[in-house]
Design a protein around this nucleic acid. Structure first.
Lengths: 243, 243
DNA sequence: ACGTCATGTTAATGACGCTAACATTGGGGG
DNA sequence: CCCCCAATGTTAGCGTCATTAACATGACGT
């Protein structure tokens, strides 16, 4: 959007064929490997550089900071989680079944990639600092470079949450599958987003407490989560609206 | 517990009257202030020392690492949260009301102390590293000192979760307030712990997503959380067991 | 009075995040 | 066809941090 001057014609944007051969991708992959091996805090940007075989200053051509590299990794995590949820949604037969499958997929993701999952919600800039704070004011060196060279990069920014596209898809698909007026009412208009948000909170609660080892082992079983949380919640909602 | 040799008779353990006058407490308070002002990652151990007016090496007489100081802070957070939950529990009239009040207290805590809440669940050693990993093996200097001088310190360790004491209290109190057989069944035996765990997951899901700004503003209202999550969930559970 | 041990300080170490200044490379316009 | 330039990567260096060892101090019991 907003093409100030005609875009350079022949070269494709960040596909491959760079010096290194797509360093941003290599960095994200290296970071992901380290996150899986050593946990979300168990590595440094320097480690990532060593793993990718570049100097410690190289990442700053593509990412404004270590935080932004991790944000890119988190964004990738959200994409994968979204894909898993979409797949589960499509397999579902009826609202209750679809929600149960999605909960299973959600919890499976968190259990198989605990460090990445924790990272996705450890959005330090947005979460851990109060409202408008920035650790260091003023544009960073990366910003100055980026300002000069058009708009260039941006590897994070996208999908810093479960994209609203996915949200809309889930609402629409569940609305289709509704078989009673009460079920339909749950996904009509803005209420649909509300219902899905509640479902997300439900899944995230179990996933986050589970990853943090605050819950008994039994909660690793999606069947228990569905039986003691998802199903009762849905039944309660439907039952009330039916009355 | 396990008093190897008779404890030193006259001096009280870590009350006050040290060189500094209870440095551990001063450090925790300074850290808490910085967490509230600058967020969970917006400060360094050196900053805490400057705020407390001691040298950067002083904390290591009382805490093994920066992580352990933050753990102590988190433990304090869990204590406060537990107290708020207990108070709400006692005010409740009936299970549904008690749970609604506890949910309100829980969400209020997370909303009023977002950085501390995030910290409480960012237990890096336990959460963010895979199973048995340690960043650096071998006993630290603090460990060696502590091994020599009996068992000495320990400011964290306690209450790294919502204490099981609180858990038992909640289960017992709710079991008393149950007015139907179905409600009573929810809190009988191990099932009680399960039910309260589910409730915790529910609250944590909304609180964590809310703190991370992943939910719409409307979810800041406890009434909505109760109406769309807590109440339906409870009604669903009770309704099913009643059948 | 004294010595001892808890408590705190000074100084030093290695790693890290980040920046500026310099080097290289590959593709497109003259 | 070649050269220029911008994108990409490197080297060197700065300030900070967490952590440690070695040293200082002072309160308390003997």
């Amino acid at each position: 959007m907003t093409p100030r001057k005609a875009a350079p014609p022949t070269r494709e944007r960040g596909r491959d064929a760079y010096h290194h051969g797509n360093l941003p991708e290599a960095l994200v992959l290296a970071a992901r490997r380290l996150v899986r091996e050593r946990g979300a805090k168990g590595f440094s940007l320097a480690d990532v550089c060593r793993a990718a075989g570049v100097s410690v200053a190289a990442p700053y051509r593509h990412f404004a900071s270590r935080e932004e590299l991790l944000a890119a990794l988190a964004a990738r995590g959200f994409e994968e989680l979204g894909a898993a949820l979409s797949a589960a949604l499509e397999e579902g037969d009826g609202i209750a079944d679809a929600l149960a499958r999605m909960a299973g997929a959600y919890l499976a993701f968190a259990r198989r990639r605990p460090a990445e999952y924790a990272l996705m919600f450890a959005n330090s800039a947005g979460v851990l600092l109060p409202e408008g704070t920035r650790t260091r004011a003023g544009p960073t060196a990366y910003d100055r470079r980026a300002a000069r060279g058009g708009e260039a990069h941006r590897h994070a920014r996208h999908a810093q949450q479960l994209g609203s596209a996915l949200f809309r898809l889930v609402v629409a698909r569940l609305a289709e599958q509704a078989s009673t007026p009460a079920e339909r009412a749950l996904f009509a208009g803005d209420g649909g987003r509300r219902t899905v948000s509640a479902f997300w909170a439900l899944c995230h609660g179990v996933a986050a407490l589970g990853v943090a080892r605050h819950l008994d082992r039994e909660w690793l079983d999606p069947a228990l989560v569905v039986d003691r949380l998802v199903a009762p919640w849905l039944a309660g909602l439907v039952g009330r609206d039916a009355r």
